[in-house]
Each structure stands twice: as C-alpha cells, then as structure tokens.
C-alpha cells in the first residue's frame, strides 16, 4: 500500500533505508529539523543543515521515487540557548522559498522550561509572519502531558494561529484528546521501545476515528524503525479494518495536511 511518513529524519539514515522505504510503498516523507545528538555551535552550522534538508536530501530521496518535504526551526533541546536560537530564527527566512519547505518545525518543548517556551513563542511569531504551517514536537515520557498542555495553551492563546494548519506530533493516550478536540491535527509516533506501538496506535484510531489523525515513525539516529508505518498497516489489516480507513490515515490525511502548504506531488 502507498503511504506517506510525515515525520522521518532521513539525514541520519542510510541510502539503503530509502530503498527499503520505497519497496515498502513509501511515496513521500516530511522531515522536520531536529537535534543532531549534540548541541551545534553556531548559526552557520544550522545554515548548512538547512541546505542539506532543502537541497541534498530531496535529491537522495528522488533516486528512489520518494518525494521529500521538510520543516525548519531550532529544536526544543537547543532552544535552551536563547541567543543562538534567535540567530537561527532570524536566518530561517533565507530558506522559506525552497521548493520542499512545508513550514516551521519540529518546534515544541523538551523539559518544559522557560527558555524553551520563550523560543517556542518566537517561532510562532515567525510562522505567522511568513504564513507558514507548523509541526510540533511534544516531550516524551513523564514530561509529555505537562508539555503538551503548555504547548496547547500557547497555541490557543494566540488568535492568529489557524489550528487546521498545525500538526501536533507524538500524541499518546493521555494527550490525543486535548489535541483533536481543539481542532489541531495529531500525529502518533511509533517506536520499537518505550513509547507508542503499532497496536496502541491502532487502538487510538479505533477510539477516536481517522479525522485529522496520522502516524509516523520519527526514525532518526537513535533506536527507531523507519518502516514502522507498514507495521501499523499490517496491524490494522490483521484486525480486519478496511483499505479505505487505513489509506485515510497513512496517505490521504498527510496529503490533505501538506497540501495546505505545497501542492503534493510524488514520484
């Protein structure tokens, strides 16, 4: 089945992964800017990263017939460095006209600190000023609930934000309702260990329905599985769900969401 992975960090994956993804039916990827595993030292380091995301990575994906889209920001972990964050935010507009940029992301919170919240709000200003869509990272484990509520407070406290153009990622059982009932899109992230499994994601689809709901692998340089979406497809097939429902979650929904920014073309 054709599918889209709306959150996958291909800069940290091999070309062999692109081949596997293509064989599994992946036709498009969106890659939010994130933490490299170490804190970068300067704005130029981010400039090079954004060149990689907007120039090199789409070419690598295209060799396997996969469309590559991206989102730009300084991630929540490095947002602790407010001075560097402001330099990066000031530089981002250099790249906003690139063909594959869908918006600002993945912005959010990590440890739910004051500096992270300050930089999150400054990213919102940037997104509004340039009419960009937003992709949001919610914190993990014990920080997720508090951080997700804080993020929703900041989004809903800003009347300029169009909720149907915001995707809140890494939702789980205790945060999904808050995100969906307030009109945002929600992404469930499938991890091999410690977080949401394909089974629990299928449960959430059964419980909340497919409206504004999608799934991603958030594959990166850590333990993660870039082919997690085919696992979800398998789980849903095993449970007897229709092709239409599965396709809605893994293909139509990301397509509909992305299309608010750039017309979706693949192949």
């Amino acid at each position: 089945m054709e599918y889209i992975d709306p959150h996958l960090h291909m800069v940290s994956r091999t070309t062999d992964d692109y081949e596997t993804l293509a064989r599994m039916g992946c036709v498009a990827i969106s890659e939010p800017a994130f933490w490299a595993g170490f804190d970068r030292g300067s704005v130029d380091s981010f400039r090079d990263y954004f060149r990689q995301l907007t120039d090199f990575e789409p070419k690598r994906a295209a060799q396997y017939g996969i469309s590559h889209y991206t989102w730009l920001c300084i991630n929540a972990k490095e947002a602790e460095n407010v001075t560097l964050s402001r330099e990066v935010i000031a530089m981002i507009p250099e790249f906003l006209d690139a063909k594959n940029v869908l918006g600002i992301g993945e912005i959010g919170l990590n440890k739910n600190t004051r500096n992270e919240a300050t930089i999150f709000l400054e990213h919102l200003d940037l997104a509004v000023k340039y009419n960009q869509q937003i992709l949001i990272h919610t914190p993990h484990l014990e920080d997720k609930y508090q951080g997700t509520r804080m993020i929703l407070d900041m989004l809903m406290g800003d009347s300029r934000i169009n909720r149907s153009r915001v995707l809140v990622d890494h939702v789980e059982e205790h945060t999904i309702e808050h995100v969906l009932e307030n009109g945002f899109w929600a992404g469930m992230t499938l991890y091999p260990v410690s977080k949401c499994t394909p089974q629990r994601a299928a449960d959430m689809i059964e419980r909340y329905g497919p409206e504004r709901l999608m799934a991603n692998s958030a594959g990166d340089w850590g333990p993660s599985k870039p082919t997690a979406i085919p696992d979800l497809i398998m789980e849903m097939k095993k449970r007897g769900h229709s092709k239409e429902l599965i396709r809605r979650v893994v293909y139509e929904n990301p397509k509909t969401f992305f299309s608010q920014s750039k017309p979706f073309v693949h192949g």
Partner: peptide, 15 residues
C-alpha cells in the same frame, strides 16, 4: 487503563 497509567507516570500540569 492506558490513559490512567500514562497520567500516573506524568508530571503535573499547572494551568
């Protein structure tokens, strides 16, 4: 149950 276990393991949110 899944939601309640999640909330049990979560830091408190203060409005």
């Amino acid at each position: 149950k899944a939601k309640r276990v999640q909330l049990l393991m979560s830091r408190q949110y203060e409005p």
